[in-house]
């Protein structure tokens, strides 16, 4: 594997991580803490959306983020042929 393709692989890897962690920050800190009060004005079932996000929704999204990471990295590994 050449040095430039190593660099490309690392950049692509960073891009994936930055995108996923931005969502992590938006959901965990944005919707569930900073804007929880305005989110609570919207309701889901019998609860405020902010409360539900903080105690349920964020966890579901965290699971999905880790899953997407594994799947996307698999594709990157194959594309750059770095898997073992």
């Amino acid at each position: 594997m050449t040095d430039s393709s190593k660099k490309q692989y690392w950049r692509a890897n960073l891009k994936v991580v930055v995108i996923l962690l931005s969502i992590w920050f938006l959901v965990g800190f944005g919707l569930s803490i900073f804007f929880i009060e305005s989110m609570n004005l919207i309701s889901i079932g019998h609860l405020g959306l902010g409360f539900w996000m903080a105690q349920q929704g964020s966890i579901y999204i965290f699971v999905v983020l880790v899953l997407i990471y594994a799947l996307v990295m698999d594709r990157l590994d194959r594309k750059y042929k770095v898997s073992d």
Binding site: V17, L20, L21, S58, I59, L65, V66
Partner: peptide
């Protein structure tokens, strides 16, 4: 009550960091 979310998000959200930034 509502502020109990610190434990829920704190312990699961930390897992995302571990999985994406450290474990592999």
């Amino acid at each position: 009550g509502s502020d109990g979310s610190v434990y829920l998000m704190g312990w699961t959200g930390g897992y995302v960091l571990l999985a994406l930034l450290l474990a592999p």
